[in-house]
Amino acid sequence: MDMFRPASTQDLHVLRGLETACFGRDAWGEEALRGELDGVPDTRYVLVAEQGDDVIGYASLLAMAETADVQRIAVHPQAWRRGVGRSLLSALLDEARRRGCGEALLEVRADNHGAIKLYEEFGFAPLARRPGYYDAGNVDAVVLRLEL
């Protein structure tokens, strides 16, 4: 990974591609992605990770008052296991702290054991479970919380 940079509306097409590659039927559409970008910098922080000329990942944070919500971390499957997701998460948490948030929340598929392990390494702990939240009601979401 070469660098992070702020995402822009010019990235919508590539962000949509990352969504599809990473989340399949749970992928966000262009409207949801545009909503994230439209909230920058007031309530949102959106980064892309680049390697050469390619965007290989992106992450989005919603930060309001005391709570930061990790909205999305997406890394292209060809770039998995290279620390991209870890670096994106670290950047989001740094931004949440910079904005004065006291906690960070996120939701993750209960069957995404690699992501859950990563979040636990950062100190996130289970807060709640949302039955049938993902995959047309077939997979639970686990809500995790980190005190900042």
Rank of each mutant, 00 (worst) to 15 (best):
V40H: 03
R72L: 10
L93V: 12
R82Y: 02
G29Y: 00
M64I: 15
R109T: 05
I116A: 13
L146D: 09
H76C: 10
T9Q: 07
G137H: 03
V143W: 01
A21E: 11
Q78R: 12
D54S: 13
M1K: 11
E107K: 04
E120D: 11
L18H: 04
G57H: 02
K117T: 14
L93K: 12
F4R: 10
A68V: 10
L62E: 08
A32N: 02
L144R: 08
D42K: 05
A27F: 01
H13Q: 13
D2H: 07
A104P: 02
F23N: 11
L12G: 01
L33K: 00
L88W: 06
T67P: 02
F122Y: 09
Y58W: 02
G85N: 13
R129S: 03
L118G: 15
Q10T: 13
R16T: 09
L89K: 10
A21D: 13
E30Q: 01
R82I: 05
A141F: 00
R81P: 05
L18P: 04
D38S: 14
S90Y: 07
R130C: 06
P6I: 08
R82G: 09
P6E: 15
G137D: 06
R44V: 06
A128F: 00
G24R: 09
T9K: 08
L37Y: 08
L61R: 06
D111M: 09
R97C: 11
D2V: 05
E50C: 14
Q10E: 15
L61E: 05
T20E: 10
E19V: 01
A115T: 08
R16D: 03
L18W: 02
E103W: 01
L93F: 09
L12I: 07
P131V: 09
A125F: 01
L92W: 01
G57A: 05
N138T: 15
D2P: 02
Q51W: 03
A49I: 08
V139Y: 02
Y58E: 04
R97P: 05
A7C: 11
T43F: 06
Y45F: 15
L12M: 07
G83Y: 04
Y119L: 12
C101H: 04
L47R: 12
T67C: 07
R98Q: 14
I116E: 15
A21Y: 00
A21G: 08
G57T: 08
L61W: 01
V46K: 01
D2I: 08
H76N: 10
E121M: 09
V70C: 14
L12N: 02
A74S: 14
V46T: 08
L118T: 13
A128V: 02
H76D: 12
D140Y: 02
A21S: 14
D53C: 04
R109A: 13
